[in-house]
């Protein structure tokens, strides 16, 4: 039942959508399935919350690793959830908490990458082979072309960067996009036919 029911649901809904959209049939039915899709997203969010609560409640109960942080996480999660539901997402307190914690923390995490890049620049970016040397030189040209100082040093860096981005990069990316599109199409057919079942526990 755990394997068959999800497969039947997947097959029937996918077949209905495909046939109805392709032949422009039963728009009301398609609309209804679309609504179910959006609603199921909200349900998945609730399941995530239940799962998070269960995992951390168990950690607190067992005095597991960093159990005190589990208290903090659960408190923040539910306090902010209740505040959002009661006051709404534009309430000054709700917005203030978001603007003064999530926003700067998010930006900080992303900025930390620059430190790793600087450290890696000396230790890892080595032209050990001819291919690596071509990649490195292209990277340096794009780095210089993307910063105003590059064109101050040599005006040709801008033109070279544009060529790399417009020609070399676009050609490679188109190949990647074609490959990914065909791959995702095949994956969709495999899920549709029940050959791949990512919704089962082990993806069998």
């Amino acid at each position: 039942m755990k394997k068959t029911l999800p497969f039947i649901l997947t097959f029937v809904s996918a077949l209905t959508i495909t046939v109805c959209v392709f032949f422009d049939l039963a728009p009301a039915l398609v609309e209804e399935i679309d609504k179910w899709f959006i609603l199921s997203g909200a349900v998945v969010c609730c399941i995530g919350l239940v799962n998070l609560t269960t995992v951390h409640a168990r950690n607190i109960k067992r005095r597991g690793r960093d159990w005190d942080l589990s208290y903090v996480l659960l408190f923040i999660t539910f306090a902010y959830l209740v505040l959002g539901i009661v006051a709404g997402p534009t309430h000054p307190l709700y917005a203030w908490i978001f603007d003064s914690t999530a926003v700067p923390l998010g930006a900080t995490f992303y900025s930390v990458l620059s430190f790793y890049i600087v450290s890696a620049a000396y230790r890892a970016f080595r032209a050990k082979t001819r291919d690596a040397a071509i990649l490195l030189v292209s990277g340096i040209i794009v780095l210089l072309g993307n910063a105003p100082i590059g064109e101050v040093i040599y005006p040709g860096f801008g033109t070279a960067t544009k060529w790399i981005m417009d020609i070399a990069n676009t050609a490679a990316m188109r190949a990647v996009i074609f490959g990914a599109t065909i791959g995702s199409f095949i994956t969709a057919i495999r899920v549709f036919l029940g050959i791949d079942r990512p919704y089962t526990a082990a993806g069998e």
Partner: peptide, 23 residues
């Protein structure tokens, strides 16, 4: 931010160059 970005890019390039010379 453009001047800061320029400076950071130059630093990265200098470090890549030094790293490769060392290698």
């Amino acid at each position: 931010g453009m001047d800061a970005q320029s400076a950071a890019h130059i630093l990265v390039i200098v470090l890549i160059a030094l790293g490769n010379i060392g290698h």
